[in-house]
């Protein structure tokens, strides 16, 4: 039997997220319809989400879907760590190194980027943002942090 995998996966994601919220809600006070506890509304929503997820999984067995198409693996591997890197280092290393490496990491998400342009671009961005955000707008960043 053919299974439409994108829909099956999509339904599974919703069921899993619904299950997470339902499980967490059960640890909270549910209360009654009159005096709802913190768990009442989310438990209801999570149940609906699980139900909808199951319906989507059900569809996967009935109708064929379209293929998902190309997936930007290189993008995922290099774009997502960029903000995480910024978060991990902005306080320790300071603004200048954090933003420079954030941009540099992100640059290589494109197969067309070369090392020298990437470094130049990141450096230009660093100078520009340090000037605009830290000097002109006065955001409370330290240009160089205590780790250096």
């Amino acid at each position: 039997m053919a299974v439409d995998r994108p829909n099956a996966l999509c339904g599974t994601i919703f069921v899993a997220l619904g299950a997470f919220f339902a499980w967490q809600s059960l640890n909270l006070e549910i209360g009654s319809a009159f005096r709802m506890g913190p768990g009442f509304f989310p438990l209801g929503l999570a149940s609906i989400l699980i139900l909808l997820g199951l319906v989507i999984i059900g569809y996967a067995f009935r109708v064929g879907g379209e293929p998902v198409g190309a997936i930007a693996w290189r993008g995922i591997v290099l774009i997502l760590p960029a903000p995480i890197f910024f978060g991990l280092t902005v306080r320790g290393l300071g603004f200048v190194p954090a933003i420079f490496f954030t941009a540099l990491i992100a640059s290589f998400a494109s197969a067309k980027m070369r090392l020298v342009p990437a470094v130049l671009l990141s450096a230009a961005l660093t100078v520009f943002t340090a000037f605009v955000f830290v000097q002109a707008l006065g955001l409370p960043f330290r240009l160089f942090g205590p780790w250096l």
Partner: peptide, 9 residues
């Protein structure tokens, strides 16, 4: 990369 920088900040 520029967008990522601006978003992070």
């Amino acid at each position: 990369p520029i967008i990522m920088g601006f978003c992070s900040i």
